[in-house]
Design a protein around this nucleic acid. Structure first.
Length: 586
RNA sequence: GCGCCCGUAGCUCAGCUGGAUAGAGUAAUCGGCUACGAACCGAUCGGUCGGGAGUUCGAAUCUCUCCGGGCGCACCA
């Protein structure tokens, strides 16, 4: 319908142009909105307001001319000018019933579209370091990223979901060393755990598993481990120097091969946990991309060579720098450290180079908001690699602050004192967790109230939407119990009986669904879909309370059932996009 | 200090590519089950859109400035 009106307007503008009334070349993007107030009709455009200035006339006069040039259309019953110069369109009420057979025919496909034109888009999200289980902070990125990906797919993009596994680098060495130290404790050694080590219980569990599987194979006396090692921070030393020394010692005492084994067991154990966790949360990937692989197959070297060829690399103070400041970054960045090791940024350049080479039309990175300062250097890298950095879209997800009622839940990662995503799922369930995460704009700092999400009362918005779906199912069960059968064609033939204001409102809301999906997808805003579903559920509940569906009058009954089943279908489609269940009973 | 995000009803948030009277939920008060599920519905109450200035037909929305909160500013990831 919206497209129809847009076509009519464009035609009118063309007419005015040829007749010389309008002397403009560029047309501002025409906005056609659904009216909030029914008195203003069904659709409105502010075209005359926008064109008044370039046309050197006042908005209302221009609106008159547009109106005169507007071709007639059977669906449009009335067009009028209102307010400062809005043009309001009134749609033939009989047109609105068509949405019900449309929904019935398309079923699960209702709401899908092809605006993405099959373009290849890669969405990378979560990508948390595999140094521990996912916590509730990652949950928001997971929920947001997966819904953005699913939305894009729904509107016709070819979506590739990817998790970048930071399985190389210092943090992983700290993890491996932490595991080994816990393992030594399993062997009976007594030690003070490094202040910069990973102290979560999962580290002990991995150590315990290794010890169980291979007994004392990796055992070394603690005295040998600590010999000539500088002091840790609490003893007046530096915690980074201390842990680095321990890492080196672990490698020496264990030998590289044994060290690798401990490292790999830790990595695989945690990675597997993350994979299962996300999968149970309704998040699935096409690819888990290894950073180590970039190191091993020469991708990092290759990418850096590209930069060197184009003269963006230079040596200084023993390190290799990328001249990102020439491309918009605030300063240059080290890519190879003095000790010869690549920085995280070096492999990230290679990773984005790799993404570009894979031929994606669009690359979407979803990061925690704390990484926002990182954006300019990645863009700089893409440009230095000769790519168009407008291919890259970085979406930032703000942190969620956890509350349990009034009480703030503390979060400290290194100490192991944090609420995991798994705990959250166990406590509030997948559906509520996803719904809560996706309910807010991603850039919005959000308060996540565990108590509210857990509550099974009317305070919980998840149940509100699910309940609407279950209610329709319940109506259908009641129909059966009363010995009636739903007569679908009879209902379709009598849709014009749906004339109460509740029914009209529902028809309009149902028709809006594809627009909502498209907008939510193109703007990367899942919360718009959630708000819509709440609206739809609300209108349904209101309707339910106002009118009996299972009436004796069969044509009316079947017409209402067809409407209500359309609501059920759209609720299911919308919740499906959010990977939230649609229960038949609650 | 510099950069990014945010500030809207008591609370949690929509609305932000400028548009018609600023909306939900929740809390508070009142009302609705002999009804297809009351996990629901209806009504009332509740606002200097953080403050100020500017841009124009028109600003919660754009610009500037100040205030307040969050996050960044590594040869960490």
């Amino acid at each position: 319908m919206k497209q129809t009106i847009e076509a009519l307007i464009l035609q009118a503008v063309e007419t005015l142009k040829t007749s010389g009334v309008l002397d403009i070349n560029t047309l501002p993007s025409v906005t056609i909105e659904r009216c909030r107030d029914a008195q203003h009709g069904d659709f409105a455009t502010n075209l005359a307001l926008l064109l008044a200035k370039p046309a050197k006339t006042n908005p209302r006069q221009l609106a008159e001319k547009i109106l005169a040039a507007l071709p007639a259309h059977e669906a449009v019953t009335k067009v009028e000018i209102a307010g400062p110069g809005f043009i309001n369109f009134f749609i033939n009420p009989n047109r609105q019933y068509a949405i019900i057979p449309t929904i019935h025919e398309l079923g699960r496909d209702f709401g899908l579209s092809t605006v993405g034109e099959g373009k290849k888009v890669q969405v990378e999200f979560v990508s948390a370091n595999p140094t521990g289980p996912l916590h509730v902070g990652h949950g928001r990125g997971a929920a947001y990223g997966s819904v953005v990906a699913d939305l894009l797919q729904a509107v016709g993009f070819e979506v590739h979901r990817e998790y970048y596994v930071n399985d190389a680098g210092r943090q992983m060495d700290i993890l491996a060393t932490s595991i080994w130290l816990r393992y030594l404790e399993e062997c009976g050694e007594v030690l003070v755990f490094p202040s910069n080590g990973y102290r979560g219980d999962y580290v002990r569990e991995i150590a315990w598993k290794i010890h169980k599987a291979s007994a004392n194979q990796y055992h070394q006396p603690i005295a040998a481990v600590l010999e000539n090692i500088p002091a840790d921070e609490p003893q007046g030393g530096d915690k980074d120097v201390y842990i680095d020394a321990l890492i080196e010692r672990a490698k020496t005492l264990l030998g590289l091969e044994n060290y690798r084994e401990v490292f790999q067991v830790g990595l695989q154990d945690i990675l597997q946990d993350i994979k299962v966790d996300l999968s149970e949360f309704g998040v699935d990937y096409q690819h888990w991309f290894s950073e180590q692989q970039l190191m091993d197959d020469g991708s990092v070297e290759k990418a850096l060579n590209r930069l060197r060829e184009t003269d963006y690399l230079y040596e200084q103070d023993g390190a290799t720098w990328f001249a990102s400041s020439r491309l918009g970054d605030e300063k240059d960045r080290v890519v190879v450290r003095e000790n010869g090791q690549y920085t995280y940024f070096a492999s990230d350049i290679a990773y984005h180079h790799h993404k570009l080479e894979r031929g994606f039309d669009q690359i979407i990175d979803i990061w925690g908001a704390d990484h926002h300062g990182y954006i300019p250097r990645v863009r700089a890298a893409m440009r230095a690699l000769g790519a168009d950095d407008s291919k890259l879209t970085v979406l930032l997800v703000q942190f969620a602050i956890l509350y349990r009622g009034e009480e703030k839940v503390s979060m400290s990662t290194r100490s192991g004192d944090f609420v995991t995503l798994r705990q959250l799922r166990n406590e509030v369930g997948k559906d509520a967790a996803r719904f809560f995460y996706a309910m807010r704009r991603s850039e919005q700092h959000m308060d996540f109230d565990l108590k509210l999400a857990t509550s099974k009362t009317n305070e919980n918005p998840v149940f509100y939407v699910q309940y609407a779906h279950a209610r329709v199912c319940s109506v259908l069960r009641q129909l059966d119990e009363k010995g009636w059968q739903r007569n679908l064609p009879l209902g379709m033939d009598n849709l014009t009986l749906l004339s109460t204001e509740h029914e009209t409102a529902l028809l309009g809301t149902l028709a809006r669904y594809p627009e909502v999906v498209e907008k939510a997808a193109l703007q990367y805003e899942p919360h718009q879909l959630i708000l819509y579903l709440r609206d739809l559920a609300h209108e349904f509940h209101t309707y339910y309370n106002a009118h009996q569906f299972l009436v004796d009058d069969a044509p009316l009954r079947d017409a209402r059932l067809n409407l209500v089943c359309a609501v059920k279908q759209v609720l299911a489609n919308g919740l499906g996009l959010l990977a939230i269940n649609t229960p038949e009973t609650m």
